[in-house]
Amino acid sequence: MSSKDLMLGRIRAALGDTAPPAGIPRDYRGDRVADLDLLVHRLEDYRAVVHRGVPIAETVAALAPAPLVVPPGIDPAWLPDGVKVLPDEGLSADTLAVAGGVLTAATVAVAETGTIVLDGSPDQGRRIISLLPDLHICVVRADQVVASVPEALTRLDPGRPLTWISGPSATSDIELNRVEGVHGPRRLHVILTEALS
């Protein structure tokens, strides 16, 4: 007998004639309108730096990360002149680890929790490129912002590799206080722009 059959047999024996509950009560909130001010507050509360309504390329230039890693589908209008850009065409981990920063787009942002979600689309790139550089600059459009977690899930494709980011890398492992800066990017800058027209 395979372990699968053994385990399924044991579980069925344990359950006997247990019936599932008649329904799942979903009386929690959903379907609300996103509040951009709340998103900014939540991001800043977890030590992300927010730039709102500013020119993207100039903001990136002012942060002066060099070299700047970008995914292959990045909007060329976001790239400042005079900054060395490294398009990700299979960059090695060692190259990424010493890059000055990475610039990506996002898929969804969640106002209530201050969360940005990347899904590996061409303007967000492989998961590794937003992980190894110490500075992550992320451009979020206003129409990508949703109110809370339920609305975010409806916009996401579970078949894609998803990374939910809420502030810079942090830990609560020392006396249960939140301390920023462990293995992931220690600086997170979010550029919040207008919706696509």
Binding site: G114, P158, P161
Partner: peptide, 13 residues
């Protein structure tokens, strides 16, 4: 952890 959301969540299929 008493956070609105933990810093990182990874999902893969």
């Amino acid at each position: 952890t008493g956070e609105r959301m933990n810093p990182y969540t990874s999902m893969w299929t």
